[in-house]
Simulated assay, not measured.
Amino acid sequence: MSWSKLKQNLESFLCPALYGRVEYRSTSYRYLPDKSGLCYIAVDKKNVFNMSDATTSIRWYQTELEIKNDANIQIPINEEEIETVRKDTKGVVPEDRLIVIARGRKIAEYAKELLSAQSALSKSNFIVVANHFLSAPIEQSLESSDILLNILALVDRRVGKKRILSMAEKMKLKHPMVQYFYELRRSTL
């Protein structure tokens, strides 16, 4: 599918409030056929999302330690996770320390998922992922661990107000770029 047709298809699925604000853009290299072009997403005429660009306003993490030390990341812990730690430590650890251990385990798991999603994104081809998005059910894109699929689904008109509002807890565990587009979509409700 040509870029212009793909762009037209993607923009036809934008929610009405974001139409004209969110744009899909592409650059190509006319005289370098072996070099692929860049695709990115602009919000209000500002380049917000370029898969491998370090100059975007959203933070790209390089190590697990950066994620663990980021104060902006809030990881919710439930009783089940605390109980798992209690069983693993055979009940000899104080209660307040159990919460710290459970949070540390969950942040480590989250960090690994986040870094693998980022590395997959930097290797992926925007056009391939966009074609997959257009042919797959919207639920599959929302539940995916792929950052780009999540973003395309969040700005989609098929995702309604009730579903957007019910996703608040899930979004805390997503990449900051996905959170940015979630907040953008929530601001239009």
Rank of each mutant, 00 (worst) to 15 (best):
E113D: 15
I164G: 11
E80R: 01
D88I: 03
I75T: 11
I101H: 13
E64A: 01
S57N: 10
G104I: 06
M167L: 11
A117F: 11
T84R: 03
L114G: 01
A120T: 09
A153C: 05
D53T: 11
N69S: 08
Q62G: 01
S166Y: 02
Q118R: 07
W60C: 01
S57V: 14
L114R: 15
K162F: 11
G104M: 09
P76Y: 01
L142E: 10
E113W: 14
G160I: 14
P94G: 07
I147L: 00
K162M: 10
I77F: 04
I99L: 15
Q62A: 02
A153M: 06
D96A: 13
A102P: 15
K106V: 03
K170P: 09
K87D: 09
V92W: 13
N150A: 01
R59S: 12
D146N: 13
K161C: 10
N50C: 05
N131C: 04
E113Y: 12
N150L: 03
I58M: 13
R86P: 04
N50E: 10
T84G: 06
E79V: 00
I73V: 07
S52I: 04
S57G: 07
L121N: 09
E79S: 04
E169M: 07
S52T: 06
I107W: 11
T56P: 09
R157I: 14
E64H: 00
I82C: 06
D70N: 06
R105V: 01
A108K: 08
F126D: 09
A120Y: 04
I138Y: 00
I127A: 02
A71E: 13
K68S: 10
S144G: 04
L115P: 11
I138L: 03
E79M: 09
L65I: 11
S57C: 12
E109M: 03
D96P: 07
L149Y: 05
I73L: 14
T55A: 05
L98Y: 04
A136W: 00
R97W: 13
D70P: 08
